[in-house]
């Protein structure tokens, strides 16, 4: 049976925003297809230009002057690896670190007036540092020698540059970005990753020199790719605000589907 409700004429619906319960942003199939091609092209270009990017990375690391930079073969290019001076503490110091970490974790656990979120993070960090010290005490060696750690860090950074734009590009297909917005976002994510990687390299070099090999795990696991992802999502969300503003300002008939 035909619907009995008369269809609204275009001038009647002009300016009316569909209810949020069932509305959807308007997507253009050609635009999505173009975006998929653009994301793939961006990724291919990234792989093709990776050797050049690694050269820039090496030049930036040399500018940091935090340690001598050598290179090693890596995925079509020369991966810059910084020499790190890492202090390896003796058994007495390791026991002291374990004790301090344990006492610190317990003290923070009972610091009821502190923000629970901060307490959770501090306790996790104390456990990580204490665990690393215990592990080194048991095995008599740090997890990595300086060059192996530097190599792991550099490889992981480059891997993140390659993976993160691709993942955010795919995730962005669920948002009506314009093609240039999508590509700008990917470029920003890549630039953020490269700059962060350089700055973080320098920070790690200083921290491991001043601290000790006990800090390797907390530094790598907490300030490694995690920071890249948080930054990437921050850029993604900032771009979403732009899209949201456009949906708010645009002609409802052009930007929203009723269902």
């Amino acid at each position: 049976m035909e619907a009995t409700h008369p269809a609204a004429s275009p001038h009647e619906t002009a300016g009316i925003r569909p209810p949020r319960a069932t509305r959807r942003p308007v997507f253009s199939v050609p635009r999505i297809a173009f975006s998929i091609v653009a994301i793939a092209a961006f990724e291919v270009a990234l792989v093709v230009l990776l050797p050049r990017l690694l050269e820039l990375y090496a030049a930036a690391l040399r500018l940091l002057d935090a340690g001598a930079v050598t290179t090693q073969e890596f995925f079509r290019g020369e991966l810059p690896v910084m020499e790190l001076n890492i202090w390896v503490p003796g058994p007495t110091v390791l026991v002291g670190i374990m004790a301090a970490a344990g006492v610190g974790a317990v003290a923070v656990a009972y610091a009821g007036s502190w923000n629970p979120m901060l307490r959770g993070i501090l306790i996790a960090e104390a456990m990580l540092i204490g665990g690393a010290a215990m592990f080194m005490l048991a095995t008599g060696r740090p997890p990595y020698a300086g060059d192996a750690f530097a190599s792991l860090y550099a490889e992981t950074s480059v891997l993140t540059w390659l993976v993160l734009p691709l993942l955010l590009g795919v995730a962005s297909l669920s948002v009506p970005f314009r093609a240039w917005e999508r590509l700008s976002m990917l470029l920003l994510v890549l630039m953020f990753g490269v700059v962060l990687s350089v700055v973080r390299y320098g920070f790690f070099a200083e921290a491991l020199d001043a601290g000790s090999s006990v800090l390797m795990a907390p530094l790598f696991l907490n300030f490694g790719p995690l920071l890249d992802f948080i930054g990437g999502i921050a850029i993604f969300s900032a771009m979403l605000v732009r899209v949201s503003s456009r949906l708010e300002r645009g002609d409802p008939r052009r930007v929203w589907s009723w269902s």
């Binding site: 959770g120 995730a171 999502i233 921050a234 993604f236 969300s237 900032a238 979403l240 949201s244």
Partner: peptide
């Protein structure tokens, strides 16, 4: 994050979208 971002977009949210990366702060 992408599901929440899409949902807030449909809901008409704007500035609150910038809080998406902060969700990680509650991980522990």
């Amino acid at each position: 994050f992408f599901q929440i971002g899409s949902a807030v977009l449909i809901d008409g949210g704007r500035q609150r979208l910038t809080l998406l990366p902060m969700l990680f702060a509650m991980y522990f």
